[in-house]
């Protein structure tokens, strides 16, 4: 298990990390969310000792992370980095061997992952000749190529087409199923919601929400009512205690109500307004949680 414990780091006037604390358990996919500049990348870099912390500690299996330990971690940094003139297979092999694989194993791993990611035809191409999406696949292969105990992926899906996103998502899920702890950041909240088991939301360098996705959704003090049809346009929301209109689009209205609200009562109030084509009463989506947490 990876533990980030009270991480603090100041860059000049900016508090990049301000007591950031959370954990990533083996076999779990953890979605790491936060607005731009909230400290996600700084936190991820600190896991690899890529920057000095003002205070706090990163632990793996209860002990401080050392160079020997990070060798068993896979990392896909936000700023992608590969040798442009090195061949794809050589590249993956090289990083696998840096992580301790022997030559035959490094080769086997490289071939396995490149095939899995659909790059088997490009193994002898240099990286600079690949498209952006394919370079990103190579980058993922590099971080996967040594059966990591922990995968840290900074925005792995950014800039990918839906098919590539699906392939990558599947590959990462399989790694978690194998027992790896996976921490990945993304701004694509629907995607994260589909993929992750746990969620950590960070803002201004501190964690504002963390836990199992289903639990944090259930634990939210709010529920969301979505109504479509003529009734949606009425003033029913003003008659529900604590209700706040979140979004109005065509004939659909999304309203946030306190979690204690009785859905039957809400439905009654709406129906009194007119015809109802659709009615949903649900815990917050990840997107709702995110907005609640960082606003």
């Amino acid at each position: 298990m990876l533990e980030l414990d009270g991480l603090r780091r100041q860059f000049g006037e900016v508090r990049a990390l301000d007591g950031c604390t959370f954990r990533v358990e083996p076999g779990r996919m953890v979605g790491f969310l936060g607005p731009n500049g909230s400290g996600k990348t700084t936190a991820m870099r600190s896991i690899f000792g890529l920057l000095r912390l003002d205070s706090g500690e990163v632990r793996w299996q209860g002990a401080p992370v050392t160079a020997e330990v990070t060798r068993r971690f896979g990392y896909m940094p936000e700023s992608r980095g590969l040798y442009p003139k090195m061949k794809v297979r050589d590249q993956v092999e090289y990083f696998a061997s840096l992580h301790g694989a022997n030559r035959a194993d490094a080769r086997a791993q490289a071939d396995h992952w490149l095939q899995r990611l659909g790059l088997e035809d490009r193994v002898d191409s240099t990286v600079e000749t690949l498209s952006h999406g394919n370079q990103q696949r190579v980058q993922l292969a590099v971080s996967l190529a040594f059966r990591s105990d922990l995968l840290v992926l900074d925005e792995p899906f950014s800039g990918l087409d839906p098919i590539a996103v699906a392939t990558m998502g599947e590959v990462i899920r399989d790694e978690a199923a194998r027992g790896a702890a996976v921490l990945f950041s993304s701004h694509q909240l629907d995607l994260v919601e589909d993929l992750c088991d746990d969620v950590v939301i960070i803002d201004h360098g501190r964690v504002v929400l963390a836990g199992r996705l289903d639990e944090v959704r259930a634990a939210s003090p709010f529920r969301y009512v979505e109504v479509s049809g003529p009734a949606a346009l009425g003033s029913w929301a003003t008659r529900v205690a604590g209700a706040e209109v979140m979004r109005r689009r065509n004939t659909t209205l999304r309203v946030r109500v306190p979690a204690t609200t009785d859905p039957a009562v809400v439905l009654e109030t709406v129906r009194a307004e007119g015809g109802v084509e659709g009615f949903r009463f649900e815990p917050p989506t990840l997107s709702d949680l995110f907005m609640e947490a960082v606003r």
Binding site: R45, F48, L50, A67, T70, R71, F73, Y75, P77, S79, R80, G81, L82, Y83, P84, F95, L98, H99, Q139, V142, S143
Partner: peptide, 11 residues
């Protein structure tokens, strides 16, 4: 090329 960040995560 920023490959150094990937390298220094291991080395």
């Amino acid at each position: 090329t920023r490959v150094v960040e990937v390298l220094l995560a291991t080395l």
